[in-house]
Simulated assay, not measured.
Amino acid sequence: MSAVNIRSARLDDAKAVADLHVAVWRHTYHALAPSKAFVALDEEHRFASWHKRLSSPAADQIVLLAESGAGLVGFAAAGTPSQAIFDGRSEIKHLYVDPQHKRRGIGRALLETMAARLVEQGRRSAAIGVVAGNGPAIAFYEAQGGRQAGSYTDPGPLWRSHNLVYAWDDLEALVRRQPVSSAP
């Protein structure tokens, strides 16, 4: 992996996170999501959401950024589960890596650092929902030791996607796989 720094997000990161979120989301879901979602989930919408999230974070919220010489190349967020299917596990709500920087260990570093931060909060397990049909993400989560633990339909206002839940029931094992250095 090239030199990547993982750090906690700050309020002044909201625009960069929103811009990357839109770019990666559109790249990832171009063949899966309806066109109305692409129009509505633009940079302005994502900025408002990220600004709100970063200006008044929930007590259990974690937002991590991956940066390299190229700037922001990935991010991950976790917190209280949004669906009962998560069965008491923390929910990893986002894990996105810029397509130009994939396959360099950034996603794995974000996931392992997130696992370490969740363990620091006293959490023992976590899960993520991935849209059915997103083969690259499914392969990634399986390669990282995630096991399929169910499915649900996201009731989102723009797109009712069918999602698979991938879970890690022993976050400490994920943390122990390989040390990850990160900034607080």
Rank of each mutant, 00 (worst) to 15 (best):
S2L: 13
A3Q: 14
N5H: 08
I6Y: 10
R7Y: 07
R7F: 09
A9P: 00
L11Y: 03
A16P: 04
V17T: 03
V17K: 00
A18K: 01
L20E: 06
L20Q: 03
V22K: 00
V22N: 00
A23F: 09
V24K: 01
Y29C: 04
K36V: 13
V39Q: 12
V39E: 14
A40L: 05
D42K: 00
E44Y: 00
H45K: 02
R46V: 00
F47N: 00
S49N: 09
K52Y: 01
R53L: 14
L54W: 07
A58T: 04
A58S: 12
D60A: 13
V63L: 08
L65F: 11
L65M: 14
A66H: 10
E67T: 13
G69H: 07
G74K: 06
G74L: 07
F75V: 02
A76R: 01
A76Q: 02
A77S: 15
A77P: 01
G79I: 08
T80Q: 11
P81Y: 08
P81D: 03
I85C: 07
I85L: 10
R89M: 09
S90E: 11
E91H: 03
I92H: 02
K93Q: 15
L95F: 09
L95M: 13
P99I: 13
R103Y: 12
R104H: 15
I106L: 11
G107R: 09
R108D: 14
R108N: 15
R108V: 12
A109G: 13
L110Y: 14
L111Q: 09
E112L: 14
E112S: 14
T113R: 15
A115M: 10
R123D: 10
S125Q: 15
I128R: 06
I128P: 04
I128K: 05
I128W: 07
G129L: 09
G129D: 09
V130I: 15
V131L: 12
A132R: 12
G135H: 09
G135V: 13
P136L: 07
A137S: 14
I138T: 11
Y141A: 10
A143Q: 13
A143W: 01
Q144R: 00
G145H: 05
Q148R: 13
A149V: 05
S151I: 03
Y152L: 11
Y152K: 03
T153K: 04
T153M: 07
T153C: 10
T153N: 06
D154K: 05
P155H: 02
P155G: 06
G156Q: 02
W159K: 03
Y166L: 13
W168V: 08
D169R: 05
L171D: 06
V175R: 08
R177A: 11
P179C: 08
V180T: 14
S182T: 09
S182P: 02
S182Q: 11
P184Y: 04
